[in-house]
Design a protein around this nucleic acid. Structure first.
Lengths: 244, 244
DNA sequence: TGCGCCCACATTGTTGACAATCGACAATGA
DNA sequence: TCATTGTCGATTGTCAACAATGTGGGCGCA
């Protein structure tokens, strides 16, 4: 006999309640965050609707969602564009990261059990592996996974939600930065000390590690700017680079 | 000569670029945050579309926006409801407030000029005035204004954005809590020490003040729960309380 | 040549109708 | 009596057509 429980037990019953707007939002977000659709590119509703084979209705709702996530900007009757992060935006992302991740560790500090430690090292190993393979895109995702663990461990849903939003911008920046200027992705160094501190006994040391870890990322940005001396308003932007 | 900048400087140029979804989202948000539409109430698209005299298209886009803001929850093909905050949600709101406001003061600490001090005292006075008048709803807004100043002063747009999101939930909680249980709004005490610390010289003292300030709010919640001993899953929810 | 006006085009905003799905209730049969 | 199934109303999802608006190019004119 097949009742709902036995079906669940067989791992079935997970048809993902398809609505077009959810699928579209998901795919569009992925395309934007990976850099497939470049920052500054214009989003034309009719074109995308044709691409996804849907009408403009569901598409527009997906766009509203991404606008609210901060990935798109819409000017009424004019157009929708992928955001371009300014240098100040990137600085703000870094400072916000420090604050959020410190909070996450505070919340999660006493909840670090064996499973947490194992998972932390597993993700660290995964990051190292992708770095060694030279797959920059995968390495970016792996690093986000590594840092995401503490948010999951915190059990703080609002904090996780906030991190998700920030993670989007961070991912966008990393992808655009890397893509536009062919800078190497995450490196091996820097993560060992992070993991060690996360497994250690001193929350204060962890805070210091986070601060220096993020500052390293910030300094990399500053150094890059000094080397290139371009407009400080839009470092990842480009005009009309829409990909089909 | 009047160019766009001088117009902006005059505070004009704010013709509301009328798109229905913006108006609808604004009004709906206000209705939800004020408690006019109770937590848990179902949002029926056709009804609201009739109420606003628009078709369902723009209305749905406004709903998507509020869903993304975390004020509404939509289950496909089933319905859209105003969120109900659980006790854990409220705890998370409070802890997030502490973190964000500490960060805001860190960012704004060295930017506190005469204008900041004057504005802080002005908003404090406004809060006191509304409290003395007994207008609870105005007092809630005044308290949010007071606390919002430091976020404005921080100049950190991402932080402001995060605060806006949190402020929505906080406002929803305050309004629903107050409305459902006829609890007094903000009180005079507690804000003097906050303002004093914000004008003082010790950032560390400010952090302590914020922590205790928020903990007071949290303790009020806990005490209320002990007194009422109701379901801990939904403290502000009610069934089918849609207002027309 | 430079400027301003006007118009056509591209794009977004809005609408009403139609289709798909869900939840609840009644009907059916063991 | 109980479980299962069919049906119905309510609600949301989707679509294609129409209207409103901003943008850029061409034209006339000084």
């Amino acid at each position: 006999m097949l009742n709902s429980e036995t079906i669940q037990a067989q791992g079935l019953g997970r048809l993902p309640k398809s609505t077009f707007r959810a699928h579209i939002a998901e795919q569009l977000r992925a395309a934007i965050l990976s850099g497939e659709i470049a920052p500054g590119a214009q989003i034309v509703e009719t074109a995308l609707a044709g691409l996804f084979q849907v009408s403009r209705g569901p598409l527009r709702e997906a766009l509203r969602q991404l606008v609210e996530e901060g990935l798109l900007i819409t000017v009424p009757y004019t157009g929708t564009h992928v955001i371009t992060l300014s240098v100040d935006d990137v600085r703000e992302i870094h400072s916000m990261r420090v604050t959020l991740e410190c909070m996450a560790f505070e919340q999660a500090w006493d909840k670090r059990d064996a499973a947490f430690r194992a998972e932390l090292q597993r993700r660290h190993a995964a990051l190292i592996a992708t770095i060694d393979e030279g797959d920059d895109r995968a390495a970016i995702l792996a690093e986000l996974e590594l840092h995401g663990l503490v948010y999951e461990a915190s059990g703080h849903r609002l904090l996780q939600r906030t991190w998700s939003s920030l993670r989007g911008r961070l991912q966008l920046y990393w992808a655009a930065h890397h893509r536009a200027h062919a800078i190497r992705g995450p490196r091996r160094d820097g993560h060992e000390s992070y993991v060690a501190a996360a497994l250690g006994d001193s929350l204060e040391a962890m805070r210091a590690e986070i601060t220096s870890h993020m500052q390293r990322g910030g300094q990399q940005t500053e150094k890059f700017l000094q080397d290139h001396r371009q407009d400080t308003r839009s470092m990842t932007g480009m005009k009309r680079g829409k990909t089909t």
